[in-house]
Design a protein around this nucleic acid. Structure first.
Lengths: 189, 189
DNA sequence: TCTTGATTGTACTGATTGGTACAATATATA
DNA sequence: TATATATTGTACCAATCAGTACAATCAAGA
């Protein structure tokens, strides 16, 4: 029997990539054991509830990452403009300039959503609310801020779909530039 | 043994809804037999290549529908403005005002795309090209027209993801209004 | 060293997967 | 009516599915 002990947190990124690639239903345990290098024994030791618990762990990690690196700055930074610029930079980095899709968006589309509806719903809701807060801090009316936030978050998701459909990440990069420019014009920067 | 004979084309819409709901990997044959009311015998009689051929038939129907109702008018109508208005109307109708997702977009995200890459790629490509043509006919420079087309088609996809994530079709309706308005402003209507 | 608990591989389960075979039935044509 | 073809239900298949059981192994503390 093997030597090195893994940590639960070590596997989560790999699980994320597998779910991105195959979707929740399409990600089989055999694929998971193969790609993570962990046998079923370890897998069910770390995630007693199986695939569901694995997906939940991945969603939690995504949640934490975005809260720390994107949402919190949007809500709390005194310099709203630079927190918005930060958002575009970090989001671009996270999605690897369009080479990576949004797992939450993918889960949202089919009935996987129903298993994780709260997390899926909140991810986008908090993103939009945080961006709205930053925009209001820059003098936009609440209604306008909400509409722009919806447009930007939606635009990012759509660009990820489009980029992947054409196998052309530049579509995503272009969309990000366009959206950032529009926001900056609106808040007069 | 039963009486009424079905037609291949009768099942395709039902297949479409099943794939929308469960994704390609998640749509099991037992679910398909149940929801279509057809046994495996009939199913494999109409689609000898199984699930793959079913999905292809669905994609073909989508392709035909959009070509007839959206893409061809955009490319061929003499009145480009009304062909763009028609696009928004028909697209809104097709996606049931945000209550229905885009199957092609869903297929694009995970590795299902690889099985149908040409169809997935062309659906969006032809959509964007057709819209670009209509915009150029209205005096927009080629580069601008292409960029707006990318923004609009992407924006629609993103709005579908967002609307479904929040279980709120109005998000889609708002996005459609916003995008139509922006296009109309750009071409001076 | 001895013990304890965390980690792991292997073997196994019953259920479900996509798919095939084929006989029975229905419709259409002659 | 007789025949040919299209359609269908059922039984079946091997492969794979998610998940369980458990003994073997490890690291660390007493």
């Amino acid at each position: 029997m093997p030597k090195v002990f893994a940590e639960r947190s070590d596997v989560i990124p790999a699980l994320g990539e597998i779910f991105r690639e195959y979707g929740f239903a399409g990600a089989s345990l055999s694929e998971i054991t193969e790609r993570t290098g962990l046998g079923k024994g370890s897998l069910y030791h770390f995630f007693p509830n199986g695939k569901n618990e694995m997906a939940e762990a991945v969603l939690n990690e995504i949640d934490t990452w975005f809260n720390e690196n994107v949402f919190a700055p949007l809500r709390e930074s005194e310099d709203a403009v630079s927190s918005i610029r930060l958002m575009f930079n970090e989001v671009n980095r996270y999605f690897k300039s369009g080479k990576r899709i949004c797992l939450v968006g993918a889960f949202a589309l089919d009935h996987t959503r129903d298993h994780f509806s709260e997390k899926v719903c909140n991810y986008f809701k908090i993103w939009m609310n945080s961006l709205t807060t930053a925009l209001k801090r820059n003098g936009l009316a609440k209604k306008d801020a909400k509409e722009i936030a919806e447009e930007v978050v939606g635009g990012i998701q759509g660009a990820l779909v489009l980029a992947r459909s054409q196998d052309d990440p530049k579509i995503f990069v272009r969309a990000m530039k366009r959206l950032e420019k529009r926001i900056m014009e609106l808040i007069g920067e």
